[in-house]
Each structure stands twice: as structure tokens, then as C-alpha cells.
Amino acid sequence: MTKHILVLLLLAAPAAHAYPSGMELLKERPWLFVGPMLSVAGRSGSPQLGLGVEATFNVGGPLAATGVFSQVQWMTGGHTRFCGGIQMTGLGSGDILILGPGRGLELGVKHETGTDTRLATTGLHIASFIGFLGSSIGLRLGIPLGTWGSSAPGGPKRTAHGTEVGLVLALKAPIPLKSCRTLACNLLH
């Protein structure tokens, strides 16, 4: 576990440099945010710790930054959790649904690899977070929708990864992008 903490600290070092002082800067250009993430996820059974990396691409609008995210985490249950989807973060003082400055929502697809006791499971990822100074804290919900594979004949019965509720901490370095003229940027803006 000490090695995992050292890796997390080394990955977090780039995020320690100056972060944009206000949400206004996010409105001016597209941004890429990259950094380590740590989670504690609970489901039937024992809680699992996760250590991984998240990358987010956001394009600012007048009230919210919209974008896409991807995550990969190595979980103490012996499996890997992959996730990706869309994200929206509030920028202005007016609320969009429940969004305000620094508050955000994620909606995506998650996939957890199989283990000796669990089948590979794909499901829905829903998360709410609050971001501040390059870091964020969030609450995620993982809902299993389907499994891949089966138990080996005569082997132990494997079941799907269950519904997950997790607390997530992330520390991401902001990387301003000069401009973005791709179709994705135009759709997000």
C-alpha cells in the first residue's frame, strides 16, 4: 500500500502548480485536465480501494463547461474498472439544474474486468462532484447492466459485480489548449 501512496503523490505533483484562479478562465478556451484519482467503493461485501487516473476534456460555455471524461482504476478486489462518458461542470452564478460554480455531473458507461469470483460486468456510471483548485470530491453510483463470460464447468460459480456506491477524490493538472476546431469541440461548445 505504501507503494500505491508514493505513486499517487508522484502523479499529483504536476497538479501542484498554479491553477486558474477563477471559473471565468474556463469559459475562454478548451481545457484538458489529467491526474490521479483515489476511490473507496462499497457494495455487498467489503469496501474496495481504487487507485487510477482520470482525463477530462472540457469546453466552456456561458454557464457550464461540457466535455468528455475517461477513467481507469485498479481496485483492491483484483480487477480493473474502466469508465468513460460525458461531463458538465457549472461555471456561472446561475444554476443549471443543480449545477453551480464548481459543481458537476457525469453520465457514462463503466466496465469492471472479471476475477476468479466475479464476471466481467458492464454498467451505468452516474456521478456528482464538487471541484476546487484542481481537485474534486465526488460520489459515484455504478449500476450493473450485463455480464460477459461465464463460470467454467465444474469451477466456482462467478457472479456479476454488484451495484457500487463510491467516494472519489481526484487531483488533476489543468492544461489550457490554444484552440480546438474539431467537430467534437463545436458540438460541446
Rank of each mutant, 00 (worst) to 15 (best):
N58I: 14
T2C: 00
S70H: 03
L167G: 02
G50P: 10
S136W: 06
G138S: 03
S44Q: 15
G123H: 06
T76Q: 02
S21Q: 00
V7F: 15
L49H: 06
A18R: 08
L11T: 00
S21I: 00
S128Q: 08
V168E: 03
L183C: 06
K3M: 07
V34H: 05
A18E: 04
L167A: 10
Q87V: 12
P62W: 08
G78A: 09
G67L: 10
I98R: 00
G104E: 01
R43N: 13
G108K: 09
G45Y: 06
K110G: 11
T76L: 04
F82V: 02
P101C: 00
C83L: 10
S136Q: 07
G166M: 01
T80L: 12
C83A: 15
N186M: 10
G50T: 09
G90L: 02
S150R: 13
L139I: 15
L107I: 14
M37Y: 01
Q48H: 10
K27M: 07
S128L: 05
G100H: 14
Q48I: 12
G22E: 07
P36Q: 04
V109P: 03
G22M: 00
L133T: 04
G123S: 10
S128F: 10
T117G: 05
L177N: 07
L26G: 00
L124K: 06
A18T: 03
L133C: 01
G154Y: 04
S179F: 02
P174F: 09
L10Y: 02
S136R: 11
L141R: 02
P156Q: 14
